[in-house]
Computed example of a mutant assay.
Amino acid sequence: MEIRSLENIDPEILFYAFQRAFAEYEMQLDKSELLAMLKRRGFRRDLSFGAFDGDDIVSFTFNGIGDFDEVLTAYDTGTGTLKNYQGQGLATSVFNYSIPYLKKAGVHNYLLEVLQHNKSAVSFFK
Rank of each mutant, 00 (worst) to 15 (best):
E113L: 12
T81S: 09
E24N: 11
F68N: 02
A23H: 06
H108A: 14
P100A: 01
F15M: 04
E24L: 11
P100M: 08
D69A: 14
V71G: 07
Q116S: 15
K83F: 11
E12A: 14
K104R: 13
K126N: 12
Q19V: 07
L47C: 01
K119I: 06
L111I: 10
A121F: 05
Y75R: 07
L6K: 12
S98W: 08
I3D: 09
R45G: 02
Q28S: 11
Y25D: 01
L38S: 04
E2G: 03
R41Q: 09
D56M: 07
N118T: 10
D55A: 07
D67V: 12
I3K: 10
F124Y: 13
Y85L: 02
L72W: 04
K126L: 09
G87T: 08
E24K: 11
K126I: 01
L47W: 01
Y16K: 14
V71F: 11
E12R: 12
A21C: 03
G87H: 03
Y101G: 07
S93N: 15
D53P: 01
F43C: 07
G42P: 06
S98A: 13
H108E: 15
I9Y: 02
L38G: 03
Y110T: 00
N84H: 13
M1Q: 14
L90W: 09
S120K: 15
A74T: 00
L14G: 01
S93R: 15
G106E: 04
N96A: 07
Y75D: 09
V122H: 04
M27S: 12
E12I: 12
F62E: 00
A51H: 05
D30K: 10
H117Y: 15
S98R: 07
L47D: 10
L29A: 04
M27V: 14
P11N: 14
D67Q: 14
L112Q: 05
M27A: 12
E70K: 14
D67Y: 14
M27Q: 13
G42N: 01
G89Y: 05
K119M: 03
V122I: 09
H108V: 14
E26Y: 11
Q88D: 00
E2Q: 15
G42Y: 02
V114L: 10
M37H: 10
I65M: 06
K119C: 04
